[in-house]
Simulated scan of single mutants.
Amino acid sequence: MKKGYVQVYTGDGKGKTTAALGLAFRAVGRGMKVIMFQFLKGMATGELKTAELLKPNFEIRRFAEAKKFTWDLTKEEFEELKQKVKSEYNQLLDILKSGDYDIVIVDEAMAAIHRGLLTVEEVVRLIDEKPETVELVLTGRSAPQEIIEKADLVTEMKEIKHYFKKGVPVRVGIEI
C-alpha cells in the first residue's frame, strides 16, 4: 500500500469490531496481510475460527486476557495484568513498525485506555510511529479527543435500538 491512514471506529453502538473485521476480510481478499490485536476479549468467537482459515494473510492475537472482568480483579491481579499489557504493547509496537503487515487493527484500544491498561499517549505513539504504508485501525467506545484529532477517519457507531435491552442474550455467529 502506498499510503496508510488511521481509522477509528468508536461510539456506543454495536459494530465497531465487525467493521474492522469487514475491512480485514476485504483486504485479505485483495492479497494484503492483516493482523488484529484484541484487548480484553476472552471468549471463543467466530472471528478466531475464520482467522485460522485465512492464514497466513490474517492473524488475531489476544492481549490482556483475564479470567475475570478487570473490575473484579484484586489490586495485585490488576497490576500483574497491567505489566503483561506493557509487554504485549511493546510486541504490538514492534510489529506495527516492522511494516510486515498492510493493516494493523487494535481492537478495544479505547477499552484498554479506559480500564487503565494503556495510556492515551501509548495509543498516540502507535499513530505517530506507524509506517507510512501501514493502515492502522483502532476500535472502542469513547475515543479520547487526542486520538480523534490524530485519526484520518473516525466513524461513530450510535445505538438507536438494541435487542439486548429486551433480554436477548449474545448469539453465536452474530455477536461472538
Rank of each mutant, 00 (worst) to 15 (best):
H114L: 14
F78L: 14
L54E: 10
M1G: 14
G99E: 10
I103G: 01
G173R: 11
I127T: 04
V172C: 00
E135S: 02
G173I: 13
I35C: 05
V85M: 08
F63E: 01
A151E: 02
V123N: 01
M110R: 02
K166P: 00
I105A: 07
A20S: 14
G42Q: 05
H114G: 09
K68H: 07
K86I: 00
M36V: 15
T119C: 10
K33Q: 11
L53S: 11
V123G: 00
P144V: 08
L81P: 09
L96T: 00
V134A: 03
A51V: 09
V123R: 01
G167H: 09
I160W: 09
K75M: 04
I113A: 01
V137N: 01
L21W: 08
L117M: 08
R61L: 15
E135H: 14
K158M: 06
T18H: 05
W71E: 02
K97M: 14
F69N: 05
A111W: 03
R171L: 13
E121D: 14
K166W: 04
G4I: 07
F58N: 05
F25Q: 01
L93Y: 09
H162L: 08
Q38I: 13
G29M: 08
F69R: 09
T133D: 06
Y5D: 00
K41Y: 06
K67S: 11
G4Y: 04
F37V: 02
P56V: 08
I176K: 05
G4N: 02
V106K: 01
F164Y: 15
P169V: 01
T74G: 10
L118N: 03
V137M: 04
R125P: 00
L96G: 04
L118A: 03
A143E: 05
